[in-house]
Design a protein around this nucleic acid. Structure first.
Lengths: 353, 353
DNA sequence: ACAGCGTGGAAAATCGTTTTAGCGCGCCAT
DNA sequence: ATGGCGCGCTAAAACGATTTTCCACGCTGT
């Protein structure tokens, strides 16, 4: 029987509770936080008063005094990208388990917006930051690790000096993906990327190049830069596919690029894997909804989230060791969209591995 | 030439700035907030001191004093659902334009988690809330509007007494979707939903029923309840599709259900639209990547976000009018996955409308 | 019997702002 | 000359908690 409400009038404060229970505010605090023992009889009085008033400690005031907000800022380029949505989702879940909350900001792949958002987060005294930066160069908002609270960079910016960083093993993943295509007999493999200026992407490009080189095809590299929009990728890919010597396989190195590639292939009335093989970076539910199933290199997004949070929490609880650089392995999901080039074509269904 | 850094040692406070500029803290505040005029000469001194120290006002302290955090809480069931991701993305963008930040929480479709998250947000003194509730009955965390700060319910909980609510016109959208299928000649249309206990869903069911009734097919209703997971939906749909009198068209009333339906159709080696028509509620990029293109009822997610934010902001700035109930129209995207039942089948490509 | 100690409670300081109250000064009008 | 007014500034109160400091009391050991 309480009245956890009456938003009319001021919210009850710790002083109101203290008065009602005839104790000092400090005692109420001690009961609620359990930091110091309180005699059973008074404890009961306090709890009764709390219940009666529907008192809820003002987290703002507590944060100010404690110099700790239990809030972490997350900055990502784009929440509509399922990869980032999944990342945020998982981090939020883990953080909540430790009673941390998330202030979420999108940079929209824009360095200036990003810098501004980070400033806002700093002003808000977030205890820590997890950032998937728009560029690997973060000098726009941090000239050194000393400028920021504990911060983990994820996906992008791997190896940034002074910071914990977490990323998929993009080089290895791209290399294995490309080798998979080469092993099927493809000699004209095009790689589609959004941008070449990010380490995660350039690692993928490097893996792709090395796979080609090791197969003696160093000259055959074709990197298509499509930008951060589906239609940008689609356009760039279409253009490539119209060429007489069009590639026999497309390796789309990002979620957006995969969508663009599929649309481009459709637009030209081609079919995978019959006319062209398709390998996607980033795996989603849809890869198993398309017909035929799309082969993909799956980034370990849950593990990336877990690792980011683990590292951040370590720093938050005072760890001062060397910076960590965590690379997590991707898995290659071979399905139906990758096949030997221009083979005879059974109508459907291939054993997936 | 400043040293916006030196995280070592305490952060500079307004008092440090005041001392350096030889003015009172209040003056610094007035310069920075512009609430009261300050003589030009002093203004300059203050700004110089601010720059020199790299001072940034502590938002926590300001919030405590101002009794306003410029923070709004968003609670959604599941961020990995692209609908909610897009919703949050857009709200965040709009809120940022007005200098509001977002505390994001996922309820995971769980009422208890949801209630808890809301309590956390209340303790954090968020100025407002935007909630897509796990259930329409929100009594677990609010017995009346007086319990919460300004709050808008979106997608779910339409018409909740005392609260502004925003939703797609689910009834109309489902009715038109169903009518589309009926007009193609389908008589066995199954509707797949996640759950029947939510108004947005039951509105869709009602629209579906009414469309059938008006066509004199009231008895033909088949509602498949698949739950909130892709595999749950897939299983339920598969079961339905195995029946001898399987439906000739599937209307999947949610993103998850569409994914499940496509997988189920594949699993049974059926093809749409040849063996069965498919109409999706919720439109995504993938609908245009699948072959054939999937027809869909598109929810106006950006408008829902905009409207939610608009209403909330109005309340935040003191509006006290009647509660608003905003229903936004959906658009029917007729593509290739919906066709007359068991018609002769040209191999591909149908004019889209 | 008395110094010393542990215990639980209350008072007061603190966190870093904003806002209110009030002060001194120059100017204008009577 | 002087009362009143506006202006620009400062000191101090306020926001609502936590933490530190201090005190009173009862117990113990010599």
């Amino acid at each position: 029987m309480n009245d956890t409400s009456r938003r009319s009038g001021k919210l009850p404060t710790i002083r109101d509770v203290a008065d009602l229970a005839s104790v000092a505010p400090a005692t109420v605090s001690n009961v609620l936080t359990g930091r110091r023992p309180v005699a059973e009889e008074r404890r009961k009085r306090v709890l009764a008063a709390v219940a009666q008033l529907g008192y809820r400690p003002n987290h703002l005031a507590a944060s100010l005094r404690r110099q700790e907000t239990r809030t972490i800022g997350i900055v990502i380029p784009d929440l509509t990208n399922p990869f980032f949505a999944a990342l945020v989702h998982r981090i939020e879940e883990l953080a909540a388990e430790s009673d941390y909350q998330i202030l979420l900001m999108s940079s929209n792949e824009d360095v200036d917006q990003e810098a501004h958002r980070v400033q806002v987060l700093l002003a808000r005294q977030t205890d820590g930051l997890i950032i998937a930066p728009a560029r690997d160069d973060v000098s726009a908002f941090a000239s050194s690790a000393a400028d920021l609270p504990p911060t983990v960079f994820v996906d992008r910016g791997f190896g940034l000096a002074g910071f914990d960083t977490v990323a998929a093993d993009n080089y290895d993943a791209a290399k294995r993906g490309c080798q998979h295509l080469l092993s099927l007999g493809h000699r004209e493999v095009a790689l589609v990327v959004s941008d070449t200026g990010l380490v995660n992407i350039s690692d993928r490009i490097a893996g792709y190049h090395d796979a080609l080189s090791e197969a003696g095809l160093a000259d055959g590299a074709r990197v298509i830069v499509g930008g951060f929009t589906v239609d940008g990728c689609r356009g760039a890919i279409e253009q490539e596919l119209r060429r007489a010597d069009r590639p026999t396989a497309i390796f789309s190195a990002a979620y957006i690029a995969t969508l663009g590639a599929i649309k481009a292939i459709r637009a030209l009335d081609l079919e995978f894997p019959d006319n062209i093989s398709l390998l996607s970076f980033d795996d989603t539910d849809w890869m198993m909804a398309l017909r035929p199933y799309v082969s993909a290199v799956a980034q370990p997004v849950d593990e990336m989230a877990a690792e980011s949070w683990r590292l951040l929490k370590q720093r938050l609880t005072g760890a001062v060791g060397d910076v960590a650089r965590v690379r997590l392995p991707c898995s290659l999901q071979v399905r139906e969209s990758t096949r030997p080039p221009s083979a005879a074509k059974p109508k459907r269904r291939f054993g997936s591995t």
